[in-house]
């Protein structure tokens, strides 16, 4: 375990907005400047981005089975309109 420096802690709560590109310019520049010099925070930002990408990719693979759709249309009495 590594205990980041206090200055790192100040930025952690903003990292989610930072990776979304939703921060105001001044704070964004402050974080970019910080991670350019702080290897630990650069790793946190990189692994945060990768974490989001991974669960987005794995979730996108989830398909609804055809039989689930069939039962849904039947429950709604729409079987005749199921394509």
């Amino acid at each position: 375990m590594t205990q980041p420096k206090p200055s790192c802690h100040e930025l952690i709560s903003s990292l989610s907005d930072f990776v979304n590109g939703e921060l105001e310019a001044e704070l964004c520049a402050k974080i970019e400047s910080h991670i350019a010099e702080c290897p630990n925070c650069r790793i946190v930002v990189d692994t945060l981005r990768k974490t989001i990408t991974l669960y987005q990719q794995t979730s996108a693979q989830t398909e609804m089975p055809n039989e689930v759709r069939s039962r849904l249309f039947k429950r709604l009495e729409l079987e005749d309109l199921l394509k």
């Binding site: 375990m1 590594t2 952690i12």
Partner: peptide, 12 residues
């Protein structure tokens, strides 16, 4: 609670 120690491991 975001102020807890962070796991800083580069697995990317």
């Amino acid at each position: 609670d975001e102020q807890e120690p962070l796991e800083v491991v580069d697995w990317c």
